[in-house]
Simulated assay, not measured.
Amino acid sequence: MTTFLESDEELVLLTSCADTAEASLVRSLLEAHGLTALVQGEHHHAMQGMMSELQEVRILVKRKHLAEAQAVLDASSVPDEEPASPPPSAGSTIAPAPGPAKLEAPDTRRARRRKRLAWAVLIFPFVPFLIRLFEQDASSRRTEVPSFADDHLFLGEVLRHLRRYGEAELHLRKAIALYRQRFAASERQAASLQLAAVLLEWERPVLAVSALEEELRAIPGSAEESPERYLRLEALALAHRFANQHEEAVKVARRALALGERLHGEAHPELLDLLETYAGALRALGRGEEALVLEARQQRSSAQQVP
C-alpha cells in the first residue's frame, strides 16, 4: 500500500471565473509572468449557451506556483475604495467608525474585475521593456537635459502603480529637480503630488510632509493665490493627518479651505476631499462639534452635485 503525497507538479485551484472571457484574461496575465495555467471547464462552459452562467470556469496552476500566481492576481487587483486612514497613535482620540460599506451588484464587481485584469494584461508585459529602454538611454547620457524630466515623471507613475515605491520616489524627485531648472510649474506640480501619493501609499507620511513643505516654500509670491498652492496645501493637510499630526493638519486645512473658497466658492466640489480631511483631523482631536459642521457642509455640497 502506498501513501499519496502532495506533488509540486499537482494542479490545484487558483481562482474561479464567471465566464471564459474573464478566464482568458487571468490566463494571459499569468502567462505574461511566466506561469502556466490550465482553464478547466472552458469548452463545457461554451457549449452550455444561456445556462453557462450557472457554471464557473476554474483556473488551475501547479502547486509549486500557487503562491506566486496568487501574488500576481493580488497585484493586478486595485481596490475601488479610498485607502483607510492609519490607526491613531497612543493617547490620541479614537476616530469615528466608518460608515456602512457601499454594496454593489455582482455584475458590477465582475465587470470592474474584468476591466482591471484587461489593463494588467496590456500593461505588464511592456513595463520591463520600458524600464530597460529608459535605463539604457539614461546611462548613455553624461548629463540630463530638462526635456528628460517627462520620462522620469512617466516612469514614476508606472512604478507607483506597480507598488515599487522606492524606485518611483527616485524618478519623481529627479523629475521635480529637472522641472525646477526649466521653471515648468504645472509639470512640477504634477510630479510633486505624485511624489506625495507615493510616500503616503508607502506609509512614509513624514517624508510626504517634508516634500510638500519644500514645494510650498518654492512657490513664488505671485502664485500665493493660485490653484497650485491650494492643491499642495490640501495634500499637506492629508499628509499631516496620516502622520497623526492632527494639530498641524487642522492648521493647514484651515488655510487651504480659506484659499479654496476664494478660488472656487464655498460649494465647489473641489473642496469635498479637503472638508473630509479637515473634519477627520478635528475628530481625532476630540473636537466633534466642529467636525459635525464641516461634515454637514460636505453632505450639502455633495447633494448639490447630484443631477
Rank of each mutant, 00 (worst) to 15 (best):
E247I: 02
E6L: 12
A32V: 01
L122D: 10
L122F: 09
A120R: 06
P98K: 07
E270K: 05
R297W: 13
L25S: 11
R116W: 06
A105C: 11
A258W: 10
R287Y: 05
S16K: 10
L282R: 01
L193S: 07
V127R: 04
P87V: 11
E203R: 06
K115C: 12
L159M: 12
D74A: 15
L103H: 11
G41H: 05
E224G: 00
A46R: 08
L172A: 11
A190F: 03
M1W: 08
G49L: 05
L195P: 02
V306Y: 00
H43W: 06
H161Y: 11
L38R: 12
T93D: 10
A23V: 01
E167M: 06
E167H: 04
R163D: 12
L5M: 12
V12N: 11
E10Q: 12
R232F: 12
G280M: 02
V252F: 09
A211Q: 06
L199I: 02
L282K: 00
R188L: 08
R182H: 13
V39I: 14
A32L: 00
A95S: 11
S7M: 15
A118E: 13
K102C: 15
S192T: 13
E31Q: 08
A190W: 02
E167K: 06
H152M: 08
A185H: 11
A67M: 06
L282S: 03
I94D: 13
S139T: 08
V121W: 09
V198D: 07
H43V: 03
R241D: 15
L292W: 04
G221I: 01
S192F: 05
E187R: 11
P98A: 08
P227V: 03
A249W: 10
D273L: 07
K174M: 10
E22A: 02
A149K: 07
R182S: 15
S192G: 15
C17Q: 10
A95H: 02
L133A: 14
R204M: 04
L25M: 05
D80N: 05
S147F: 14
A211S: 14
L103Y: 10
Q245V: 03
L195D: 09
L272G: 06
H161K: 06
L66Q: 08
A185D: 14
T20K: 06
S7W: 10
A249F: 10
Y179M: 03
A235N: 09
E6S: 12
P83T: 06
E56D: 09
T3P: 05
T20W: 07
